[in-house]
């Protein structure tokens, strides 16, 4: 009984410590790279404007899987009993979405594209339905990278 409790407390502390550290570093990296790639324009409109002179259009995508830590899962379990905003998962999904877009942008940059249209995202839970498994979230961002024709 007490052993179980001690194990849970240790896991919580570990989960919180590592999870918090990883999250902080990830956010720092995301903010830095977003600034770097500010020039790569991304839009959700399906069609590029008519007056753009396009030389090449290609599918680009970025994929990311992030795991929930024990602390987040524990808090979400408590939250599941009384309801409300899943605040601990908000940062997780925010990070995953932004990371996926960054990876997609990076791919477009390698191709020499100038902008990405028709950007869409898919979100999936990796351990869907599996009991007692630490859940992970997958986000896939994809769009059409466009290379502008030089005059």
């Amino acid at each position: 009984m007490y052993i179980d409790l001690i194990v849970v407390v240790i896991l919580l502390i570990l989960g919180y410590g590592f999870g918090r550290h990883a999250e902080r570093r990830h956010y720092q990296s995301i903010i830095r790279r977003e600034k770097e790639m500010q020039g790569m324009l991304t839009f959700s409109t399906k069609m590029p404007p008519q007056d753009l002179r396009i030389s090449n259009a290609r599918l680009v995508g970025g994929n990311v899987v992030i795991s929930v830590d024990y602390f987040k899962r524990f808090v979400s379990g408590l939250r599941g009993l009384i309801g409300g905003r899943m605040k601990t998962y908000e940062t997780l999904l925010d990070r995953a979405r932004r990371e996926a877009i960054l990876r997609m942008k990076a791919e477009a940059q390698e191709l020499g594209a100038g902008m990405i249209f028709n950007v869409k995202m898919e979100t999936a839970s990796i351990s869907k339905g599996a009991k007692d498994a630490i859940g992970s979230v997958e986000v896939y961002a994809y769009g059409t990278a466009i290379t502008l024709a030089s005059r």
Binding site: Y16, R20, F71, K72, V75, R85, K87, T88, E90, T91, L93, D94, R97
Partner: peptide, 10 residues
């Protein structure tokens, strides 16, 4: 897209 609250507070 996230809330500024400290996770330990929640």
């Amino acid at each position: 897209n996230t809330s500024p609250d400290h996770p330990l507070k929640e």
